[in-house]
Write a protein that binds this DNA or RNA. Structure first.
Lengths: 402, 402
DNA sequence: CTGAAAGCGCTTACAG
DNA sequence: CTGAAAGCGCTTACAG
């Protein structure tokens, strides 16, 4: 019996396209039906220019008919790359079953999309700091590189980053860009954002501005926001007294507690700059529970512009971190690293988003009117809708005396 | 020169543990150093009981020293499974760069954790309905099974599910459990949740209850909520008039628009049951813009209990879908499918979460008092905090006349 | 308990 | 433009 012509044995491949096919089709099945070698099938399907156009079409048609998909495990093994990026979340403050920080969730969305655009898959994993995460993904060839996301204690984190660098792992990290940072980071210009917010509150006539958020070196992002803020105050001849700063991690609970602590200190204040929106939401809750009005009694602002910031009552003035852009940049940078192209750390601009919680936008009297009107008229509708306060309305500083 | 003893050539492996190692270590490297065969290394590291305890320890130590990790591509290729699940999101209504529904984000969190608990990786992908998603992941052996998540037009979706079933793909889907559903679904008991909410609003004394949310068969989940609601009304001798129902997909924008449409119809109503929290948040915004108070003029309730529901002003009464449990069940069920164990569709109980937006909890007079007090006293703190309204306080029905 | 060997399904020099 | 061959790094019968 003569040896088969093209390196495969006919086996049970005769007959109609799918009859007799056990399990998934392989490139040999396609080759047999197309009357070419398996190499040619591989080339045709991977878009190699070395294939005759007609042959390619025939192969593609057959592949479609057989519902053939290249086996990623085999192709990855052979080509020594995975076509996959791994996203590692760190949730140090909330290792329990609680909800994930919505800001990171937004990042997740944009990273996922960016990966898809670049033809990469995304492996997602939630990590504890104790985990031996630094090695797993790239070493086991599940991913070509890592994206690191999450607040967290800075020092232990840093030493893990060094290990990653030493191992030659490809990674980018979302976080503050610091001088002696191991590896590459993409972050938001926290200092600038904090400064803009401080200046804005001052322009609104606020004079005694509290800051809620941990400002130890463990929390370099909050620290940078605080420093920018303090700089803006100083520029206006104001100070950021220690009595008006309370530590808080980025949760509503911490924000609530921090605001209560602040209130218990009995120091007058007319504004709260919270280091994150979550903290701000908790603080607003606490203020409401103490019978204080936002922004009439206390202006409250946050940082991040998470989706629910718009839906706070009143809508929360905050600093937008452009997660869309961040996700794209993170993925792009990581891909450059993987391809051994030059790549560098980057700071994304922070943008002030002015809503009503800072006292800008809809004036108090308009609010007052609305309230009075609504008291008169229970739910029968048809009134002309009040214009929604535009997100970025210019706002005259309201002078305040304490 | 004698042939090497154990099937590998010494190569550049002499010297200290890592010197001379090009790239990652392989099981052959470990075998060489441990003085055993590569097979034994593989067995030891995969936890086979067929390995001498001492040998195993030696191998494990060396593997640690060399920072060795099993190559997933190779092991997956060989064992024909990936140890990975794929999570496919469908975002039909919002194909743009906008934010993802926070409810699904919560699910993502719980699914990720459930996967980790079971030792699986999670591949995440956002899909358009047009995509040929039904085949890709499992066929290319990137995942052992799929988790399908997302609202969406029901009919086209359904035919894709049939295709998946025909192909023998392992998948579970989050969504309504319907009689002639292809494949396995895990969902929330939307009917029951809607009924509970309807009954609750009636018990609060509300009589003309609007429903915001699309109730065509395209949206079987909203439809089920609506039907449960209507059933509760009927049980109380009330009706759910068509004039008080407005279609809306699950976004704040749609909720805002739907509430405006409702108001423009000039039909009296004293409550809005929104088919989702996002719709409810938008509706509350619209009501506020029309000078209507929640809950004094209109009670508003939602569905999902997304994180920001607690932070609405007033906090939103809603129906909790237990995403923690759902994620776990989704993963567990899929794993059973993959292992060819019996598995079945399941309905998770819905739980009413009572906050202030429905008129229960903190009484109007208390609110009034708080407001008056706050008007008197600008931000100097130290007052006794008002008790936060307990999440599930028993509430006497407040009679209402229109 | 251990080793020698086959083979998972590809990609990619190498040779024409 | 195409084919024959090697080999990616494992797992797993098979034989002792």
């Amino acid at each position: 019996m003569p040896a088969p012509a093209l390196g495969y044995t006919a086996g049970d491949l005769q007959g109609n396209p799918t009859a007799g096919m056990k399990g998934k089709a392989t490139s040999f099945d396609i080759a047999y039906r197309a009357g070419v070698s398996q190499s040619t099938v591989s080339r045709a399907l991977s878009g190699s220019p070395l294939v005759n156009a007609q042959t390619r079409q025939r192969i593609e048609r057959i592949a479609r008919e057989l519902n053939y998909k290249v086996d990623k495990n085999a192709s990855n093994l052979r080509s020594q790359q995975s076509g996959t990026l791994a996203l590692l979340f760190f949730e140090d403050p909330t290792p329990d079953e609680s909800h994930i920080n919505p800001f990171f969730l937004s990042m997740l969305g944009s990273i996922t999309r960016a990966c898809a655009r670049h033809g990469y898959d995304l492996l997602v994993s939630f990590q504890q700091f104790s985990d031996d995460w630094h090695a797993d993904y790239e070493d086991s060839r599940k991913a070509d590189g890592l994206i690191l996301l999450g607040y967290g204690d800075y020092m232990p984190y840093c030493s893990k980053l060094e290990k990653l660098v030493a191992q030659g792992t490809h990674f980018v990290r979302w976080g503050p860009v610091l001088p002696d940072q191991p590896g590459i980071s993409i972050g938001c210009d926290n200092h600038d954002g904090g400064k803009a917010m401080g200046a804005h509150l001052v322009a609104q006539g606020r004079r005694r501005i509290a800051f809620l958020g941990t400002i130890t070196p463990d929390c370099p992002e909050f620290l940078a926001r605080y420093r920018g803020h303090a700089e803006a105050l100083a520029a206006a001849g104001l100070s950021a007294p220690a009595a008006l700063q309370v530590d808080a991690i980025s949760t509503e609970e911490a924000g609530y507690a921090a605001a209560c602590t602040l209130l218990a200190r009995r120091q007058p204040f007319d504004a709260i700059f919270a280091a994150s929106d979550l903290i701000a939401m908790g603080a607003m809750q606490a203020l409401a529970d103490h019978g204080l009005r936002v922004p009439e009694d206390v202006a409250v602002t946050g940082f991040d512009d998470i989706p629910m910031a718009r839906f706070a009552q009143p809508p929360l003035t905050t600093v937008l971190q452009d997660t869309q852009r961040a996700g794209e940049l993170l993925v792009e940078t990581l891909l450059r690293l993987i391809r051994n192209e030059p790549a560098e750390s980057r700071l994304l601009p922070a943008r002030l988003v002015i809503r009503r919680s800072c006292g800008a936008g809809g004036s108090p009297s308009a609010r007052q009117g609305a309230r009075a009107a609504s008291a008169r008229s229970p739910a029968h509708p048809g009134k002309t809708p009040r214009r929604r306060a535009p997100a970025r309305s210019p706002s005259a500083p309201r002078p305040r005396t304490r």
